[in-house]
Amino acid sequence: MAGALLLLATGCNEAPPPTGTATPPERFLVVFSQCNNAEPYRASQNRRLEELFSSHPEVKLVIHDGQADAAKQIAQIENSIRQKPSLLIVAPLQRDALSRVMGEALAAGIPTICLERDIVEPNYTTWIRCDNFAIGAMAGQWMTEYLTRKNGAPKGNIVEIRGMQGVEGAINRHAGALSVLTNHSEIRIIHDATANWFQPVAMDRMTEALNAHPVGIDVVYAHNDPMAYGAYLAAKEKGREKEMVFVGVDGLPHEGSRYVQEGILGVTFEYPLCVDKAVEVGLRLLKEPGFRPEKTYLMSSRMIARP
């Protein structure tokens, strides 16, 4: 039963079989082990990956969904190793749990790209990563400049809405921002709340922050765009959204970028999908026998603001 469902699920992700005689046969099997399809950022990754490989009919792409379960993702990678794919791309759920099985893939001679998150051993051919600390620092820098413009000096009050505690993204988006903000003694984080990345929770926590601080909030810094949007809605309900500016992170086209265009967020910072680089490097690994990729590629973020 479960096996049948799995077949069904993976079947949905496969490209339609090639039709017509002109289409070259599929020569390469590329497996993407995604840690959790049920996150918008990761859904965008999957879609972009399918889009990029769709112009390469010689590649058969299969995406496995680890469903936020490390054991499941490990089992899926083990199954993939048996199929001897030409390329394995892994977006690991946890840095410890996935290290060993990725080492097994390498040992089986499968080129393995580690996407976005780190693992404890360098068990990958190349690691394409983002830097949350740098993103936090960019946000911190933007907030400092904004407060200087607004208040004539680097001073003012920030409410921080944090992602899930203990998660790398939340830790480094916080630490990065703080690395800049602590240089200015008159910039204060007057309220920080944890909203676990969720928009509805951010609305409730922001409502409490607004009530606790009836005046004097200059900036709301949320660790992702949905929480920034939730904070905006909470302020709007009280007619206070014009008092402060909302800063988000992620910049997905239909979320953060759209909120910025609509004037809801003052700015957001892109958390790169990393898949464009993965496809570029992956295709070279498939087709250029002598190609040696760099051990890591760091994807830079960019600020998304209205012109």
């Binding site: 399809n37 918008p40 859904a43 928009q199 609509e262």
Partner: peptide
């Protein structure tokens, strides 16, 4: 998740 295609469906303001 299927109906939403894993995405949040934004309704805007």
């Amino acid at each position: 998740l299927w109906v939403a295609d894993n995405e949040r469906i934004g309704l805007g303001v």
